Simulated assay, not measured.
Amino acid sequence: MADPELQSKVRALVGREYGRVNAWDEVNAPMIRQWCEVMGLDNPLYSNPQLAAKSSNDGLVAPASMLQVWCMEGLHANNYPPGSTTENPYEVLKLIESYGYPAVVAVNSELTFERNVRPGEKLYYTTRLDAVGDEKTTGLGTGFFVTLIMSYFSEQAAGDEKVGELLFRVFKFRPAHVQKPAAAAPEVPAAAKRPKPGVSDDSRFFWDGCTEGKLLIQRCTQCATLRHPPAPVCIECHSFDWDTLQASGKASLYSFVVMHYPEVAPFDHPNPIGLIELDEGVRLVAGLVGVKREDISIGQRLQVEFQTFDGDLALPMFRPLAE
């Protein structure tokens, strides 16, 4: 049963409203264009002013799913624009943690939209601690489901207008521990291995190539279009006929993330992962090696190198080239 003092403190926080977090920039066409490019969207309502002006929207709009993006802090954590609140809307998680519930896992995130937003609008959001459930026991452990609601607004001269809402729910818990018989000898944990990729008839050539130290890209034999990840049909001419091209392995860094937490064995952390643009024109996701976080930069030149893990798993990794 949960500590009565903790329950009392948590109940006192439920319903609390936290101040606004401002967007760094107005809704703008360049960010919309980049988002659509990354997500593979080609809807003219997002990119073609002439066609969008003839639609029921009467002009360009931003993809609805970008709503959360406009108010994000950017590359550095908690780097919010001037005028944003300094309150911590996650203080309830710190409170629960102080009573012996150290772990957290995201449960669900739900976006709802009041209307489309347009280039030129300036957005912000406020946060409300909507609910903290009673103590529950799950397969992960015992803890509390915490629900926060972020309400998004557009600044308007006649009064700010709500444009959407994000429901974010996490489980803050004390991990379950399996009790072993007292007389049982301690088990030596097996060394964690890298998860192996799913291999299908469409992708087998790629992984076989990695084993041989070759970076093979699928190529349509009818129109010569390269495609990755591998697929059974050409994305351009819809032909089923294909062969492979051995890529040079030279590439540029198109984008990247650095995984810090949770730390998952057997990966080293921080764990940089890049979206790699090969010189041949296709992109793939791969690990970055031989580089520190502060030395990673978009556009830097890379070269593939194949590394073998657990004796039989060959993976393409990319190392920055010297200037």
Score class of each variant (00 low, 15 high):
residue 88 N to D: 12
residue 305 E to A: 10
residue 128 R to P: 00
residue 98 S to F: 10
residue 109 S to Y: 10
residue 195 P to K: 04
residue 260 H to I: 03
residue 102 P to F: 07
residue 166 L to E: 08
residue 61 V to M: 08
residue 165 E to N: 11
residue 251 A to V: 00
residue 96 I to K: 00
residue 53 A to T: 06
residue 47 S to E: 03
residue 99 Y to K: 04
residue 290 G to M: 02
residue 142 T to H: 13
residue 192 A to H: 11
residue 267 F to M: 09
residue 170 V to T: 13
residue 160 D to G: 05
residue 50 Q to F: 05
residue 35 W to V: 09
residue 44 P to E: 08
residue 311 G to N: 15
residue 56 S to W: 11
residue 286 A to Q: 06
residue 286 A to E: 03
residue 63 P to E: 12
residue 46 Y to N: 06
residue 291 V to A: 10
residue 49 P to E: 01
residue 174 R to M: 10
residue 244 T to Q: 15
residue 71 C to Y: 00
residue 236 E to G: 11
residue 275 L to Q: 11
residue 279 D to R: 09
residue 245 L to R: 14
residue 12 A to F: 00
residue 243 D to K: 06
residue 141 G to S: 04
residue 262 P to A: 04
residue 293 R to T: 15
residue 135 E to A: 08
residue 85 T to H: 10
residue 104 V to I: 15
residue 71 C to V: 12
residue 314 A to S: 15
residue 316 P to C: 11
residue 271 N to M: 12
residue 40 G to D: 04
residue 275 L to C: 14
residue 48 N to D: 15
residue 35 W to G: 09
residue 43 N to H: 08
residue 106 A to K: 03
residue 86 T to S: 08
residue 217 I to Q: 08
residue 321 L to E: 09
residue 261 Y to M: 07
residue 298 I to K: 12
residue 115 R to A: 08
residue 140 L to I: 10
residue 141 G to H: 13
residue 235 I to H: 15
residue 30 P to S: 13
residue 321 L to K: 02
residue 48 N to R: 02
residue 44 P to H: 04
residue 232 P to W: 04
residue 74 G to D: 10
residue 52 A to S: 03
residue 180 K to D: 00
residue 109 S to H: 15
residue 18 Y to F: 14
residue 6 L to D: 06
residue 125 Y to R: 01
residue 300 Q to K: 09
residue 112 T to K: 15
residue 69 V to K: 02
residue 127 T to Y: 01
residue 214 K to E: 11
residue 123 L to T: 02
residue 81 P to R: 08
residue 215 L to K: 06
residue 137 T to G: 13
residue 255 S to Q: 12
residue 323 E to I: 00
residue 189 P to W: 12
residue 313 L to K: 07
residue 101 Y to D: 06
residue 321 L to G: 01
residue 137 T to Y: 11
residue 171 F to M: 10
residue 13 L to K: 06
residue 21 V to S: 02
residue 258 V to Q: 01
residue 303 Q to H: 07
residue 224 A to V: 07
residue 153 F to V: 01
residue 268 D to R: 09
residue 54 K to G: 07
residue 159 G to C: 12
residue 129 L to Q: 00
residue 303 Q to L: 10
residue 28 N to Y: 04
residue 298 I to W: 00
residue 198 G to F: 10
residue 139 G to M: 15
residue 200 S to Q: 08
residue 295 D to E: 14
residue 96 I to N: 00
residue 265 A to Q: 10
residue 57 N to T: 15
residue 242 W to E: 05
residue 306 F to Y: 12
residue 63 P to M: 03
residue 237 C to H: 08
residue 184 A to Q: 15
residue 280 E to K: 07
residue 293 R to Y: 07
residue 273 I to Y: 13
residue 188 V to M: 13
residue 182 A to F: 07
residue 67 L to E: 01
residue 217 I to C: 11
residue 145 F to L: 11
residue 287 G to M: 10
residue 92 V to P: 00
residue 136 K to I: 14
residue 292 K to V: 06
residue 301 R to C: 07
residue 317 M to S: 02
residue 289 V to K: 02
residue 182 A to N: 09
residue 257 V to P: 02
residue 161 E to K: 13
residue 164 G to V: 03
residue 36 C to G: 06
residue 319 R to N: 00
residue 39 M to F: 09
residue 118 R to L: 04
residue 55 S to L: 06
residue 284 L to N: 05
residue 220 C to N: 13
